[in-house]
């Protein structure tokens, strides 16, 4: 579904992503783990069209999208839930969801969108009572749920999630990740970027460890969870000898 080959991204003369290659297949959850400044968000922002690659190719559903504009990338079915939620704070929650479904509503899918909204309320029951509230007035956890719902209502082919746990209390993090597991069981393809390794690796099929703009490790969830380097550097455990 998504294949990235030799991706390099620069901010001016500073190279942040230094030639990474990876792929995401239909129906799987792939996680990129890395510390602050490793280049995780930059990678996702590039895939979503917010940044242009300096080098490398990005193919999504057999189309080259590297350097395409965000709205063109979104129209192909790739949807980013950005870091820090980034809802439209002065719009109501309902309007945020409508804007998530902008392209569908433009195509006249009003009934389908209303039906999907009901399904999303089952996934995130906290949203329904807040529908007519300003999105900016919600708590961090509620905002994250709306941000995910806003992306899901577009019926994405691939969901990119940038640090969904950021700034949330542990209980809320758990409910967000429970929702991800439910989405996974429905066959949604997700590329997740996460600093908290145990969370990110806990839900994925495969993962990559990004260090200073390069992949240091890659493998299946179990391989990574057992890898001494991951255990020591990312999970805070001493590997068994």
């Amino acid at each position: 579904m998504l294949s990235v080959d030799g991706l390099r991204v620069r901010y001016g003369s500073l190279e942040v992503v230094k030639g990474i290659s990876f792929s995401v297949r239909e129906g799987e959850i792939v996680t990129i783990i890395g510390a602050n400044g490793a280049g995780k968000s930059t990678t996702l922002r590039t895939l979503a069209g917010l940044l242009s690659p300096y080098q490398g190719t990005v193919m999504f559903r057999d189309r080259k999208i590297g350097g395409a504009r965000p709205y063109n990338v979104a129209a192909l079915g790739l949807r980013l839930v950005p870091e820090g939620r980034q809802l439209f704070p002065d719009h109501t929650v309902r309007e945020n969801l409508e804007l998530g479904a902008y392209l569908r509503l433009w195509r006249g899918e009003r009934t389908g969108v209303a039906k999907d909204m009901e399904e999303l309320f089952e996934l995130f029951p906290q949203i329904r009572p807040r529908l007519d509230q300003r999105a900016g007035s919600l708590s961090g956890g509620e905002q994250q749920m709306v941000a995910i719902a806003r992306a899901l209502i577009s019926q994405p082919r691939l969901l990119l999630m940038d640090e969904p746990s950021l700034g949330l209390a542990p209980m809320l993090i758990q409910s967000i990740f429970d929702a991800l597991i439910k989405l996974r069981s429905r066959g949604l393809t997700i590329l997740l970027v996460e600093q908290m390794a145990w969370l990110g690796l806990g839900v994925c099929d495969r993962g990559y460890i990004l260090e200073s703009g390069r992949f240091a490790l890659e493998g299946s969830r179990d391989e990574l969870l057992r890898h001494p380097r991951v255990l020591e550097a990312y999970l805070g455990k001493t590997p068994r000898s």
Binding site: R69, Y71, L80, Q86, F88, P89, H91, E98, Y102
Partner: peptide, 25 residues
Amino acid sequence: TLLGKAFRATASSTEVAGLMGINTR
């Protein structure tokens, strides 16, 4: 109106509006 809401969304954040598929251009 949907277009009006898209105007407000673009005013709020061009970047995020683009992520919604709104042709901010």
